[in-house]
């Protein structure tokens, strides 16, 4: 199991966090075309290599943070503190709906 470095709690088992997937910035809701909005909602790049992804420390400090993970080697880069934009999708406590 991946060891995920929460910026507040430190390294924790991935099962103690909620994976939020690839991060996307939110388009302006008043300007976005349906294509742009649905790309934000549904389309993911799924790269083989470095990926910026969102995590939620759901069983700990409840911080939302992003980090960069290499999907082929499992390497992680330093986590980033909250405030980074991630695609808004509802999540329940600890488990995906």
């Amino acid at each position: 199991m991946l060891l995920v470095p929460c910026p507040v709690c430190g390294p924790k088992n991935a099962a103690e966090l909620t994976y939020r997937g690839e991060t996307h910035s939110r388009p302006d809701p008043n300007q976005a075309t349906p294509e742009e909005w649905r790309s934000y909602l549904y389309l993911r790049d799924n790269p083989a290599g470095w990926l910026r992804e969102g995590w939620f420390c759901s069983s700990g400090c409840r911080t939302f943070f992003t980090l960069e993970r290499n999907t082929t080697t499992g390497e992680l880069r330093e986590p980033l503190l909250p405030g980074n934009k991630v695609a808004g999708r509802p999540i329940s406590d600890g488990t995906e709906p």
């Binding site: 999540i91 329940s92 406590d93």
Partner: peptide, 14 residues
Amino acid sequence: ATVWNWAENWLQTE
């Protein structure tokens, strides 16, 4: 639980 996480999500990330 969902709404609590949801609200925190918007506050923290956006």
